[in-house]
């Protein structure tokens, strides 16, 4: 009897979100491992492949299977790189190359993004922008180089424009595709919320197109390094490419390999940075990636 009284005297409180609901949801459940799919992420896994490659190179050179005249031994390359750095030849060249890479990338990304937005958000924009970009896409930079040389001279401007032209393409293609693949429901939702066009672009279009943009970014950084090799070997008086060109005329294989290794390292590093940003920025997606 007293029990009953105690029970009825208890103030009526509306329960918070029910346990059933919590249990049904993912909120309280530790993320389970999928049986299918690629499995657990490996720490620093992106380094394994390149390290294996390096291992084969070291092993092959040490065992004498790789003729040093064909491919310089890794330790020789390391020593040469050190010498170049010590003598102050590598540092300035590296800096010049890095600057060209960064500027070309920045301008290319900005241009690609603006064009993708113009073409993605308006049919007229698409009618005007898309064709020329597709035309540019089918013309290799190498073929454009003579014209660019004529138009912009042989100075830094030409090099940065050439790199930017290469970067622009993947940024445009993937951002445009990402933007157009945004779920129509989000646009409908934005309409019921009466978002203004600026807010629609900032809050819906840009975050929605981010997966596409970041994929484009991975192609863009690689493209930026590739264009760099081209412009520095065709017409330059500084930079890693020039250093390699010079080494080629003097038959210094080891210096050429130093340049190649540098390109490889920089390319791998910049791609890894983009992938890191990708994982951080796209954590709202549930994909096989995580």
């Amino acid at each position: 009897m007293t029990d009953l009284k105690a029970a009825t005297a208890r103030p009526v409180v509306v329960p918070p979100v029910d346990d059933e609901e919590l249990a049904a949801g993912r909120a309280s459940r530790p993320r389970g491992r999928r049986r299918l799919g690629p499995g657990r992420p490996i720490r620093l896994g992106f380094l394994i492949g390149p390290l294996l490659l390096l291992g084969v190179w070291i092993w092959g050179s040490a065992a004498g299977w790789i003729d040093p005249r064909v491919l310089t031994a890794p330790w020789t390359v390391a020593a040469t790189a050190w010498d170049l750095w010590e003598s102050g030849r590598l540092g300035p060249d590296l800096l010049v190359s890095a600057r060209r890479f960064a500027l070309g990338l920045a301008f290319g990304v900005a241009a690609g993004l603006v064009l993708a937005l113009v073409s993605g958000l308006s049919r007229w924009g698409e009618a005007i922008v898309d064709g020329p970009v597709q035309i540019k896409r089918s013309i290799p930079n190498l073929a454009l180089l003579p014209l660019l040389l004529l138009w912009f001279g042989i100075d830094e401007r030409m090099k940065i424009i050439t790199i930017a032209l290469g970067v622009l393409i993947p940024i445009y293609i993937h951002t445009h595709n990402g933007l157009r693949s945004i779920d129509g429901r989000y646009a409908e939702l934005a309409e019921t919320l009466r978002l203004r066009p600026a807010a629609f672009v900032g809050r819906v279009v840009l975050p929605g197109a981010l997966p596409g943009f970041l994929l484009g970014m991975r192609f863009a950084v690689t493209s930026s390094w590739l264009s760099l090799v081209v412009v520095e070997q065709v017409n330059a008086t500084s930079g890693i490419g020039y250093m390699m060109l010079l080494a080629g005329t003097y038959g210094q294989t080891d210096v050429i390999i130093v340049g190649l290794v540098l390109y490889a390292l920089l390319g791998l590093a910049s791609d890894s940075i983009v992938r890191l940003v990708q994982r951080r920025a796209l954590s709202w997606r549930r994909t096989l990636e995580d």
């Binding site: 049904a24 949801g25 909120a27 954590s283 997606r285």
Partner: peptide, 14 residues
């Protein structure tokens, strides 16, 4: 308590 969660971390009801 869920202000800073993302939608994919919530159940359908939430």
């Amino acid at each position: 308590g869920f202000a800073h969660k993302r939608p994919h971390e919530l159940s359908g009801g939430m």
